[in-house]
């Protein structure tokens, strides 16, 4: 492995550890978060639920970047990178959906026994996750590696262009309980400065974690390809 990798890995893991400590270290006077009706302590979910989506967006960008390189350079290595990033993105998207559902159940829908209410942002995010799910269905249907790389790279670019629309533009045009929707104050207006002290580092930390997982996936896939080539040699 590259020499810098060890250092980056150590930084990411200790960084996220500090973020976790920060996320819980409230009370008393130090980093005391405001207690808001309905939200109460669940406001801390800001440090976990929202970074899932930021991370998904960052890692889909990485996936699209490698899809583009795959098309330009006709490189199967870029295909491996693009696919690995899409898998991590899918994973973080699913985590975002599940954590959001749990959070909403105990705040917005408190006492109603509702887990899923088709809030526009929720719905669009689910559609986006399904679109990335379909990427893997598409790959599974194609046997020829070169063809699979090209077709899925084109689909990947299509999927990525939808991200800003499905996660930002459309939900903001509709009535939603999420911040920033029609009539709702945006994140920047309602979030207490003290919470940003943990929130932004949390976003960076989770993107770092996604990068670690992505790197491991890529190395696994590259190894699998080399092992396959060696096996063919032995036949």
């Amino acid at each position: 492995m590259p020499r810098y990798y060890r250092a980056v890995r150590l930084i990411i893991i200790s960084w996220l550890t500090l973020v976790l400590v920060g996320a819980f270290s409230f009370g008393g006077t130090w980093l005391n978060i405001p207690r808001i009706n309905i939200l109460e302590h669940t406001a801390r979910n800001l440090y976990f639920h929202v970074p899932m989506w930021f991370t998904m967006m960052a890692i889909t960008a990485l996936s699209a970047f490698h899809a583009l390189r795959c098309l330009k350079a006709r490189s199967l290595t870029s295909d491996i990178r693009s696919r690995s990033a899409a898998l991590v993105a899918l994973c973080f998207g699913l985590l975002g959906l599940v954590t959001g559902s749990v959070w909403a159940h105990y705040t917005w829908y408190e006492g109603t026994n509702v887990w899923w209410n088709f809030d526009p942002k929720q719905t669009m995010a689910a559609v986006q996750v399904l679109i990335y799910g379909a990427y893997f269905a598409l790959r599974g249907a194609l046997d020829d590696p070169a063809k699979r790389a090209r077709i899925s790279a084109v689909y990947n670019l299509f999927a990525f262009t939808l991200v800003p629309f499905l996660l930002y533009v459309l939900p903001r045009q509709m009535e939603s309980l999420h911040p920033g929707a029609e009539g709702n104050p945006a994140f920047s207006e309602i979030t207490h400065p003290v919470m940003r002290l943990v929130f932004y580092p949390a976003v960076l930390g989770f993107i770092g974690l996604a990068w670690l997982l992505y790197t491991q996936r890529v190395r696994t896939q590259l190894l699998a390809r080399r092992a396959e080539a060696l096996d063919e040699e032995e036949w």
């Binding site: 492995m1 890995r9 893991i13 670690l212 997982l213 491991q216 190395r219 696994t220 190894l223 080399r226 092992a227 080539a229 060696l230 063919e232 040699e233 032995e234």
Partner: peptide
């Protein structure tokens, strides 16, 4: 995460060795 990295390191070393023995492969 650390243990997965260690396993990958080991496998990479092993495949490097095998490729060195069979120069046309890989």
């Amino acid at each position: 995460i650390f243990s997965t990295d260690r396993k990958l390191d080991r496998l990479e070393a092993e495949i490097n060795d095998r490729e060195a023995q069979e120069p046309t492969a890989g």
